[in-house]
Nucleic acid binder design. Structure first.
Lengths: 279, 279
DNA sequence: CCCAAGATAGAATATATGTTCCATTTTCTA
DNA sequence: TAGAAAATGGAACATATATTCTATCTTGGG
């Protein structure tokens, strides 16, 4: 961080302030003081508001941002907004600074996937009520066997749960369409069906959900939002939203949820052992 | 919270959505879906941006907000802004206090899973050389079809990759043992085999790896450590270690890696397509 | 004390914003 | 199928925004 470089994060921005602050005209120092004190709130303040709250002219804030190497007030605000949402700078912008650090486009893409996976999990952690997972586990354990239905991407989740529950000696009827062999799409009252589907929801899974419900089976859903056709039908609906990177979703948070559900089921089925040993 | 009341927080807002969602016109449901997915990011999106990202007309967003009892888009955004300013402590801090307060076991278990998933992804991010992913993608794309082998838990990863690559119109031979139908365990020179296995490595997968190698096929592996029998045999070995919670592993990092690999392959197969834009 | 160079505040401007309105399309009803 | 009702997208609008410009003020050196 030197005197000339353009800050790309709030941290760099604040560092640069402390470097150049003595060379700044008085009013711009006032701006610096105000901005530093406001901190995160800067993400929301318009120049007009900042001006009113501080008694400093709007134009001073723009000169201030420019003195820091930024284009203007909006540009500065972007730094604060990115920090608030923990986003990284836009792709186009970063691609310019690649070479300097000896990075490639592949690096960016990979880091983006990791970041968005982490963001999804953090969001899951704050939004999900663990009690719902318990409720789901409770229902699933109330019957000796479980239907698991998931298609496309969701099939990998279905497979995972089917396998792990199998390790717990719980019977799982994994609905596949191998050879188009029909798996009964009628259910008995009291049976438990675990349905997994994300947007775009496959109509088949929705149909199964409706049938299960009307047959009096219990329905547990893993889906994305309360708007999902599954969530309305389910007795317990576990919702997990995956952030996307350029329209492509990762399934890290979903598998995190699946693991938590699996273990919750495992402890119920065999509260002594299973979970301990290296599953 | 009833149908008529005006939401005063994001929570109430989301609750109201799930109450009235079925009575909403289709486009407004699209809005609901978009808003629920975007979550905290809604604090900063302008209607124009939201419109562009979602492909929904700006006016629809305003009608949507009004349908929820709010005055307009700005009014709705205020809810998200207020939530954002209620400075939530960073997640690591939250975890520690959760642990200390000794919430219910369910809470702890869930939080631990999320925490260890994140730790695994962070580790992956620092240890993995993205160039290896590129190399793997390069090899996989060099042939018109790909063998994918994975058993037990790893099968879900295999399924995921098989599905996604299928979406890219790449041929995938997914090795399953449905009906014990034999999938040729001999390979032609130049064929590409993707093997996925983690400790404890199934002997069968190791055998396939050895056969593939001796037949002159190219081998790409997704495994856990350089000590894995696969990594020695593979032309490219992608290694991902998952932390464990009481002996139970999550697969978040693995799926993060899988997604990165898939997209890397996707861009190669169709550089003009979906994946590029807006990353 | 004067004058140049810089800093400042507020008016002027261009841009982008949220919202309203209306013609067109879609959906429902009879 | 025809007619009514609702929904939709885009143009039009008023407003608020960040930024630029300029006349005025401040500062510091000779």
């Amino acid at each position: 961080m030197n005197e000339a470089s353009i800050p790309t994060s709030v941290t760099e921005f604040e560092k640069k302030i402390s470097i150049i602050k003595d060379g700044l005209p008085k009013r711009l120092q006032d701006c610096a003081s105000f901005v530093l004190r406001k901190g995160d709130a800067m993400a929301f303040l318009t120049v007009a508001q900042a001006s009113q709250e501080s008694g400093i002219a709007p134009s001073a804030f723009i000169r201030f941002a420019q003195a820091l190497g930024l284009q203007g007030y909006s540009d500065m605000q972007q730094l604060f907004r990115r920090q608030a949402t923990q986003q990284r700078p836009p792709y186009r912008y970063r691609i310019n600074t690649l070479r300097q650090r000896g990075e490639t486009e592949a690096d960016l893409l990979f880091v983006d996937f990791c970041d968005s996976s982490i963001a999804s999990i953090e969001r899951l952690m704050t939004k999900m009520d663990p009690q719902l997972i318990e409720n789901a586990a409770e229902i699933i354990c109330s019957k000796p066997y479980l239907h698991v239905v998931g298609q496309r991407r969701a099939f990998s989740v279905a497979c995972y749960l089917a396998y792990v529950l199998g390790q717990f000696d719980h019977r799982v009827i994994l609905h596949t369409d191998v050879g188009s062999i029909k798996i009964p799409n009628t259910f008995n009252p009291g049976e438990v069906v675990l349905l997994i589907s994300f947007e775009p929801y496959t109509s088949e899974v929705v149909l199964v959900a409706e049938k299960a419900k009307s047959d009096g089976a219990q329905v547990v859903a893993i889906t994305d939002t309360p708007l999902s056709p599954l969530s309305g039908l389910a007795d317990v609906s576990l919702e997990v939203v995956e952030e996307d990177v350029g329209g492509f979703r990762t399934y890290s948070a979903t598998f995190c949820l699946a693991a938590a559900l699996a273990v919750s089921i495992g402890t119920r089925l065999n509260s002594a052992s299973v979970v301990k040993e290296n599953i």
